[in-house]
Amino acid sequence: MKPSISCKFNRFDLLLSLFVVLAAAALALFFLSHAGGEAGEVSIRDGDNAPYSLTLDAPRRVQLADGHITLVIERGGVYVEYADCPTQDCVRTGKITRTGESIVCLPNRVVVTLEGAGEFDAVTG
């Protein structure tokens, strides 16, 4: 005689299902928050110097390109306050606030980028 197997959905199964769904949701939230959240850091490439990152939580002014560029870092974004190059492209870029956005100064080879994966993979225009 075969032993009978109960397939009834009991309280333990319910708790286990809840655990699976909640754990999956928590981990998914973790991955998503790291793929498109607000920028917390700005990466700075200043000529041939080694690139470095600064947090946006501490507002400050940073001198780049041996003082030819003044970068302002504040909560939520960064902008170039002063540049002594003729084109002023980096000043005209204005304040960048979204992850993945950059300010570029070609003459001084300075690239300032808000770190993190943004909503877009690239921008044209």
Binding site: R92, T93, G94, K95, I96, T97, R98, E101, E119, F120, D121, A122, V123, T124, G125
Partner: peptide
């Protein structure tokens, strides 16, 4: 790939 097209009247 998601590629945004910049607004010519508002750089941000």
């Amino acid at each position: 790939w998601r590629v945004a097209v910049r607004d010519p009247f508002d750089g941000s």
